[in-house]
Structure formats: structure tokens, C-alpha cells
């Protein structure tokens, strides 16, 4: 019963999370020690109904964590295309980059998550953006041998 709001978000426990919010509404966008919000936890763990619930309550999908991680990058890295689509409908920065110059598209390509790659491309993700190490999405797909990723990008 003493799980944090972030843990409840990751577990998709909407009713328990709602109890926390009823006591302290500021928890909605509270950031943990690394700067992750409940929405980021839900996005990272693929909890789509929780993502929708938090957004409906007014959670800010544009918040960045301490090393500039975003909910969109977390969902893309996890391969959760439905959540990627929901976040893209909420006006997030599609090309936000973080501590190693990763963008949502780079994470989707790295994880070989084709549906996420295509959702991001459909919404105009910058295909030329290179990671700090100089890899563009196409170069990354080739280096990792992700054929489908290459096809989507090309």
C-alpha cells in the first residue's frame, strides 16, 4: 500500500494512483530523483491506459528528465507504438534529444521497433538527426542489420 505514485503508474494501478492524486494533485507531474514523472514511468512500462488517464488529468507530456529523457523516447525505446501515437497527438517535441544525443526515432530504430519508427516518420521525425556518435537513423539500422528499419527509413 505504500508504493510511490511512480511505481503505481508503472504498474498501471489507476485507482490507487487516483487516491494519491486526491490527497495531493501536485503529484501528477512530480519528478523522482532522476527527473522522471509518473507519465514517463507509465510510458516506459507500456501502460497505455495509465498514459491516457494521466494525460486526461493534465499531466505534461513535454517534461524532460534530468538527462533530457522524454516520455516519447521511453515509449519509442520500449516499442510501445500506441503510446508513441498518443504522445505525438499531444504536441510533444518529436525530435527531443538527450544525454547521448538519442532521439525517439534513433531509439525506435535501435530497438528495431518498426511500428514506432513508422509512427515517428509519419509525424515528420527528423531522419537526418545523428546520435553523438555520428550515427544517423539509417546508418544505425544498417550497422545493426535491421532490414525492416532500413526499408521504413529509405
Amino acid at each position: 500500500d505504500n508504493l510511490s505514485i511512480h511505481q503505481l503508474a508503472a504498474h498501471g494501478e489507476i485507482s490507487q494512483l487516483e487516491v494519491h492524486l486526491s490527497k495531493d494533485s501536485s503529484l501528477l507531474n512530480s519528478q523522482d530523483e532522476r527527473g522522471f514523472t509518473p507519465l514517463m514511468w507509465a510510458a516506459a512500462f507500456g501502460e497505455i491506459m495509465m498514459v491516457e488517464f494521466l494525460l486526461q488529468k493534465g499531466a505534461d507530456p513535454r517534461t524532460l528528465a534530468r538527462e533530457r529523457e522524454s516520455a516519447l523516447s521511453l515509449a519509442s525505446a520500449g516499442g510501445f507504438a500506441d503510446i508513441v501515437n498518443i504522445l505525438l497527438q499531444h504536441g510533444v517535441d518529436i525530435d527531443s534529444y538527450d544525454w547521448n544525443g538519442g532521439t525517439p526515432l534513433l531509439y525506435a530504430v535501435r530497438g528495431n521497433h518498426i511500428k514506432c519508427v513508422e509512427a515517428l516518420l509519419r509525424c515528420g521525425a527528423d531522419i537526418t538527426f545523428e546520435a553523438d556518435s555520428g550515427y544517423s537513423p539509417v546508418a544505425l539500422a544498417v550497422a545493426l542489420g535491421h532490414k525492416k528499419g532500413q526499408e521504413s527509413l529509405l
Binding site: A10, E69, N100, Y107, D132
Partner: peptide
């Protein structure tokens, strides 16, 4: 029901293990 604690989300290093371009 007891929920197990998840570890904090993290993003993988994009190019770990790949040759420098």
C-alpha cells in the same frame, strides 16, 4: 496483491558496441 518494485526507467546507449563512425 503484492506489487513488485520496478527499477527506474532508463534509455539504452544508442550505439553501444558499434564501431565509431
Amino acid at each position: 496483491s503484492q506489487l513488485s518494485l520496478y527499477t527506474s526507467p532508463s534509455l539504452p546507449n544508442i550505439t553501444l558496441g558499434l564501431p565509431a563512425t
